[in-house]
Each structure stands twice: as structure tokens, then as C-alpha cells.
Amino acid sequence: MATKSLEAKMLGKNVGRLFLQVFLILVGLLYFAPFLWMFSTSLRLAKDSFSLPPALFPTAFEIGNYFEVFNKVPFFSFFLNSFKVAVVVALGNVIFSSMAAYSFARIRFPGRNILFLVLLSGLMITNQVTAIPQFILMAKLHMIDNTWTLVLLWLVNPLGIFLIRQQMMAISDSYEEAALMDGANRWWIYSRIMVPMSVPAISVSTVLWFVANWNDFFRPLLFINTWENMTLPLGMTALTGAVGSGNYSAVLAGVMLSLLPCVVIYIFGQRYLLEGLSTGGLKQ
């Protein structure tokens, strides 16, 4: 009797498990389907782009659409600008955020706690709240339409400082004490001890910050005025304007092209991201 009900329970559990797995696969497919549609439609002739049934699998192979994208807009410039800004911003995070994190984690100086809270409150001071004065400031400084302006606006990463500081606070004092006894200065301790030991937190914050910057649309929308300085998100809207009338396939080709760098970023970044999240974690 007992065995039978245990078997039944096991069967029920397995069926339930199977059910959930199928459900998960369905959801996964739903998440993937839009990319498939974008890809297949980008290969259709312009006049078929909106024809139904919609393309889930490529049936046409109009690669010309992809060339059209490069013809109509300086797509490569868009990509380069995005890349330049995002990479510098990422480096900025690695250096400046970790410096600040070290100071907050390990150096006692007057006003430390208050300054840290103030910096953290920066998370609540959102894009739109600061956009107008930032814009006016940059306009007066003649720094509108300058990709370096975009970099400057992204160099402070309160969340990154927070995460790295967390990790640094968990590093044992003994390393520092030993180094101090050997006569090392703060910079040596920072660069030779603290940074290498906080690589997980630094990686996580850098990857996430890079991605956020890569996708930033609002700031380039405000601060960039000419075609040559546009970043990819802004460039995509230029593409829609330049080609949109009558050629959705080319627009989608542009969409696919703009996703290629993201794939590369994912392949390189996801290892750091996940390793970093599990060790550098969110322990409060």
C-alpha cells in the first residue's frame, strides 16, 4: 500500500516536473521567436515585408537589404561611436569606481559615511531630473554634439561603487596589514591587493554598466546633433527615417546588424557576469 502511494506520488511529481519543463520550453520559444521573425523578415523583398503569413523561418534571401543599410546611413560610424563610448565608460568604471570603493571600504576619513550615502542617493536622481541643466551646461561649454560628453555623463556609477565596496569590505585585513608593515603605500595596496581580489564585483558592475550605456538612447537623443556622432540606438531611428518608407525589411536588417555586437558582448561578458554575481553577490 505504502509503496503504491509512494509510486503514485513519484509519478505525480514526475508528470508535474515534465509539465513544467514543457512550459519552460514554450516560454523560451516565445522569447526567441521575435528574433527569428526579425531575421526572416529582414531577408524578404521590401514589398513582401508586411505580407502575411509572417516569416518565422527565412524563405527569401534578399541580402541586398543589408547592403541597403550601409548605403543609406553611416552605420559603421554609429557602431564605432557606440563602441568607443561604451568601452571608455567601462574602463572608467573599472578604475574610478574601484578607487572610490576602496576608499569607502578601507580608508577612514572625515565625512566618509555621509559622502557614501550621498553618492548612493545618486541612484534616485534619474536621467530626466538632471537632463535639462546638464544640457544647458554642455551647451554653454560648447560640448554638445561631442561623444566625449556622453562618456563624461556615465563615469559615475553609484551601484558599481556599492557592489565593489561590498566585496572589498569582505577581504581580510591581514593582507593590508602585512603590506603596510612592508612599507607599501595606499596606491600599491589598492592596485596590487584590493583590485585583484575584487575582480568578481568589478566584472559584474562593468558588464552591466557597459550594457546600460550601449543601450542609452535618451542622452544621445539630447546631446548629439549630427549624423557622424550618433551612437547605434540613435542611428537606428535615423535608419528608420532614411529607409523606412517602403522598406521595412531593410530596417529589420539594420536591427539584426545592431544586434551582432550584442551577441559578441554576451559571449565575452556572461562568464564574468555570472561568476561575478555568484561570488561578488548581493549580500547585504
Binding site: F135, M138, A139, K140, H142, M143, I144, D145, L221, I224, N225, T226, W227, E228, M230, L234, T237, A238, T240, G241
Partner: peptide, 28 residues
């Protein structure tokens, strides 16, 4: 020749003039 990006087709001229005004105000 410089091309001024106008992102939003629904508010084309508004955005364009804003960009131009910015350039003027910024000395460019």
C-alpha cells in the same frame, strides 16, 4: 554638409528646430 538627426517622425520639425537652436546657443 551636416546632417541633423531627427529621431521622432511624429514631432519632426519640433525636434529639428530644437537641435538647431541648441547648435546656435552652443556657438556652433
Amino acid at each position: 554638409v551636416i546632417v541633423v538627426p531627427v529621431a521622432n517622425p511624429a514631432a519632426y520639425w519640433g525636434s529639428y528646430f530644437d537641435k538647431l537652436q541648441t547648435m546656435i546657443a552652443g556657438g556652433d
